[in-house]
Amino acid sequence: MRKALLAAAVLAMMASPGFAQSYKFVIVPKAMNNPFFDFARDGCQKRAKELGNIECIYKGPVEHEPATQAQIIQDFITQKVDGLAISVADVAAMTKSIEAATAAGITVITFDADAPGSKRIAYIGTDNKEFGVALGKQLLKLRPDGGKYAMISGGPGAENLAERVNGVREALKGSKWTEVGGSPTFCNDDPALGVQQMTDLRTAVPDLAAIVPVGGWPMFAPEGFKAFASKSKKDIDAGKFTLVVADTLKMQLELLNEGYANALIGQRPFEMGEKAMDTLLAIKKGQKVPEIIHTGLDVVTKDNVAAMLK
Rank of each mutant, 00 (worst) to 15 (best):
A122S: 14
A67D: 14
I57P: 09
P61L: 08
T107M: 11
T68Q: 12
S118T: 00
K59S: 14
A101G: 10
T126I: 11
G83K: 02
G83A: 09
I106Y: 05
A103N: 15
N128Y: 05
I121A: 10
P66I: 07
G117H: 07
S97I: 06
G60W: 01
A89G: 15
T78R: 14
K137E: 13
M94K: 02
D82H: 12
N128D: 14
G60F: 02
L139W: 03
D112K: 00
I124T: 03
A85F: 03
A85M: 08
D90T: 09
L51Q: 12
I86A: 01
V108R: 00
A101N: 07
D114K: 04
N53A: 08
K59F: 13
V62A: 14
A122R: 00
V81A: 11
D112Q: 06
I77P: 07
E65W: 01
I54C: 07
T78M: 12
K129H: 13
A115G: 06
D114P: 05
T107C: 13
Q79I: 12
A70T: 12
Q69C: 05
I98L: 11
G105R: 12
T78L: 14
H64A: 15
R120Y: 02
A85K: 01
V91H: 03
S118I: 02
V88W: 00
A134K: 11
T110W: 00
E50I: 07
L51Y: 08
I86T: 01
V108K: 00
I72R: 02
V91E: 11
A89W: 00
V62R: 11
L140Y: 10
S87G: 10
V133T: 10
A70F: 08
A85G: 11
E63F: 10
T68C: 03
D75G: 15
E63P: 03
V62P: 07
A93N: 10
A104G: 15
Y123T: 02
E63W: 06
I54P: 04
D75I: 09
G52K: 07
G125P: 04
Y58W: 13
Q71W: 08
G83P: 02
I86C: 00
K80L: 13
D114N: 14
P66L: 07
N128A: 06
G117L: 08
K80H: 15
L51W: 05
Q138G: 03
A104M: 12
T78C: 08
G105M: 13
V88C: 01
T110F: 01
A134D: 08
G125E: 02
I106T: 05
L84M: 05
D114C: 07
N53D: 08
T126H: 02
A103F: 07
S97C: 08
E50L: 10
L139P: 04
E130T: 10
T68E: 11
A101L: 09
